[in-house]
Amino acid sequence: MDNLLVAENIVKKFGDYTALNGVSIEVPKGSIFGLLGPNGAGKTTLIRIINQITMPDEGLVTLDGVKLQSNHIKDIGYLPEERGLYKSMKVGEQALYLAQLKGLTKNQAKERLKYWFDKFEITSWWNKKVQELSKGMAQKIQFIVTVLHQPKLLIFDEPFSGFDPINANIIKDEILQLREEGATVIFSTHRMESVEEMCDHIALIHESNKILDGKLIDIKRQYKSNIYEVGLLTEQKAETEKYLKENFELSEANFKTINDELKFNIKIDAGQTANQLISHLTSKGQLTHFVEVIPSVNDIFIQTVQNN
């Protein structure tokens, strides 16, 4: 697959502390790439290296096959986790300044800002000072400034923090829209549900090492546990339970139902298929519920980190 950004064997040390220990990632073009990891794992350091804020001690980062260099700044849009604006500056002035730092001319910047301000219906903020804005309002400005120069690569570090659900949704839709238009997105967050919803690739960093990466769907397949959530309506409950226990590994299940039925999580062996399980079940009663348990990103995250 065609990769937009490739980081190979990145090592970064701060004194005696190793922040990144030979981390490699490949971000495919047009993907939404989730960069995950517990606090202090080294995500922000990696993101700063991609932004050329800090230099790696070892390793190579290429963007579109070219070694990272200073004119790549205009190809990257970065919304850091620790973000803010100049408090005493006016919104419009500030947006213009930041856009110009990214290499836009003043007129280009004005035109595009007008488009975004209209889109978010915030044209009236132009002459307000930032200190008059609420946190959520300021976040919107920061989002606009990040995407304004139409970079190939967008990096969002906790983009939804500070937004109410409605605005978080607006931002989410905008990110998806930008991906449609051809941008590649690196997305770092602790909100696993948004990773689930948006990312198609993930990498998991833990204690300076990458411990997992790949297509989200492949990872889920890899982590699938062959467990099925089952509801069975039967008269002879005790007998059925005994029978199932002899043939399968059972555990408690908890799902909502309208019937008074047996509820189990049933794990099948590698050699068995779902069909075999179903024929066992149907022979004992009426099957009301049958779902394959797919591991959530949350589960994968916790499981992988704890195993390391």
Partner: peptide, 17 residues
């Protein structure tokens, strides 16, 4: 100090040396 406390610094230095 103002740039540090207002947290704009990281945005700026992703664009400027």
């Amino acid at each position: 100090i103002e740039e540090k406390t207002s947290r704009i610094i990281e945005v700026i230095i992703s664009s400027v040396k």
